[in-house]
Design a protein around this nucleic acid. Structure first.
Lengths: 342, 342
DNA sequence: CCATGAATTGTTACCTGTAACATTAGCATA
DNA sequence: TATGCTAATGTTACAGGTAACAATTCATGG
């Protein structure tokens, strides 16, 4: 018996009870209580009852901190995304959690608002909590980020795009091919003066823009792009639509880097009395739920967002079990949904 | 010099470098490196240069685990919400992070899918990571949850609703009053056969339902509710609309517990050729971005979701600084936006 | 009645950063 | 030169759970 035990059981601050507190109450060492919690078979039946009572009585809450410190196993996975409010990433998160949560892993979410500087700092923060693995997005990372990831010695999976060479493993879609396919689809439907709407010029938007440009070029059509660095929104789509009609009054098609812009553009047409798709074809990207109920149904590229999250989590868990990377790049299929708006 | 140092600097696994590794490289004790990191003034100028080089060289990443263990200060805040994909909660999260992130706190998000059992387990998990404070939603908690929270000894803030008595502090709106106000607004516009659409019968939906019922009753009208326990979606709104017209063909108003259902219902009317608002008034709840651009503009209750998150985070930080709870309940205003759909 | 071994409980050490205290070096003043 | 003081660095202990090893108990069989 060391004297500090008496200190703890006496007055003091009302600090959260530790295994030692429980052990004191029962009259055993904390090791015995620890055994009870991990595998009660190792403890004699009479003690089991007393320990259970003491745990309930004190309201003992397990503490991961010592484990994290001594084994560097936090059972937490860091997920770093550009934005948390964007519904696309919200669905990725849902996919990730649907796998991690039943596996007993806690998700630590962070976002960096498309800033590389913020990305560095968020990754350092996640690593400072000893996350067991990381799911990150984008594919361009600073040297410091790459160094941190390599030094950390934990599995890393990059998600959303499947074209750039991954650090270790990437899961996503071919954004450029998807944009090419949708643009071609619009062209086949008879649209020729197609304008591309882009917000937040991140890597994936740029890849889609390239796909659009390639398709226009291959069909002998002239490209035109309206873009901004600020965040995308429904009202931005409305605003861009007006801008497009001013700059190029005979515009007959709009391809947007996401559904938010497309929906905004579509409503702008409705307000202006422009018939969709007769006078104006409009297509979005990602397959927002609303696109599947609205009138007219929005043409969009349906992307497997939730599956990207699920797969990323599954592959991460597999690697945490010690399995090697089997496929460096997992390229998931997208689907062109013509809807009624092109 | 203890021998374990030599072990570390030799081969072994490529474990993430510790302060000890950096110290070995420089030829000082880890305490000196620790001082450099916290306050480089305490280290002599020549050493500063060598330590900085060693840190960069090894790619040292700070480790919060020891701090969490010895001071139980994790600089992480747990945020527990019913759902992460719902845009309402996504905006709450944005508000929370806008305050916590600049203050140097990491957000640990968790969700419980409206299940009380899951809530218990998620709170235990968050506490096991020694979060410094908790932001939780709903107001009904099991005895075990209340015990855990009291034992944990950290500040807790409940968000979203402002009517139930809080554990410590609550920040939100009066859902019942908001629903009452919107129902009255619909009645004043001439709608009388108003049906309430509800999904996921959580506490806030029930409060809104009560507000709707009270308003109908006070105006001598007959209430009718269509509901389900499953999650809300745009297509569910469509389906409910059909159901309402079957059960009560002369329905002339729909008040939905959220905008998703309302938007689905509105598109269902468009498809069925029912004029909104002439033949059918439709109102939602929360003020989804899309409600402000769509045609017709959706009537909705605009709620300060982001501000709820911001305020919760601010009050939590204030309490972490040792300030007492000043206002047990913070009741934020909502705004009835009639739009063009009622 | 003691040896053997299984079952149960105890002891020690460890993980990493840092607070608190201790020591040493360096320099100025009496 | 001794004294006192500051600046710079070192030493020790600690947080809480658990792996690894040690000790104790108790029953069983020879």
């Amino acid at each position: 018996m060391d004297t500090s035990l008496d200190m703890k059981s006496s007055g003091m601050k009302n600090k959260r009870p530790t295994l030692q507190d429980v052990a004191n109450l029962v009259g055993v060492t904390k090791m015995t209580v620890s055994r009870f919690l991990k595998n009660s078979d190792q403890v004699s039946p009479p003690l089991r009852i007393k320990i259970k009572e003491a745990l309930d009585d004190l309201g003992y809450i397990p503490n991961r901190a010592p484990d994290i410190l001594s084994k560097s196993k936090s059972h937490a996975i860091g997920v770093l995304l550009p934005s948390l409010t964007n519904h696309v990433f919200a669905e990725v998160i849902r996919g990730v959690e649907s796998i991690l949560e039943p596996a007993g892993y806690q998700t630590m979410l962070a976002h960096y608002g498309y800033s590389q500087e913020a990305e560095e700092s968020r990754i350092a923060t996640l690593l400072s909590y000893n996350v067991d693995g990381l799911i990150i997005s984008e594919s361009y990372h600073t040297e410091r980020v790459r160094k941190m990831l390599s030094v950390a010695g934990i599995p890393v999976i990059e998600i959303m795009d499947s074209t750039s060479p991954p650090i270790e493993q990437a899961i996503g879609i071919d954004n450029q091919a998807a944009a090419y396919a949708m643009t071609e689809c619009m062209i086949k439907k008879g649209h020729t003066k197609i304008v591309y709407f882009a917000a937040r010029m991140d890597q994936r938007t740029l890849l889609r823009l390239q796909g659009y440009k390639a398709a226009m070029h291959d069909n002998g059509l002239t490209e035109m792009c309206i873009s901004t660095d600020s965040a995308s929104s429904f009202s931005l789509g409305e605003q861009f639509m007006k801008e497009a009609l001013e700059k190029q009054p005979d515009t007959d098609g709009i391809f947007c880097t996401n559904d938010d812009l497309a929906i905004g553009a579509l409503f702008a047409c409705q307000k202006a009395g422009i018939k969709v798709p007769e006078e104006m074809g409009i297509a979005g990207f990602h397959g927002h739920d609303i696109a599947r109920v609205m009138v007219p149904l929005l043409a969009t590229v349906i992307t497997p967002r939730e599956e990207i999250g699920r797969l990323a989590a599954e592959h991460l868990l597999s690697r945490l079990k010690g399995n090697p990377v089997t496929e460096k790049v997992i390229n998931l299929p997208f689907k062109i949904e013509p809807g009624e708006s092109i």
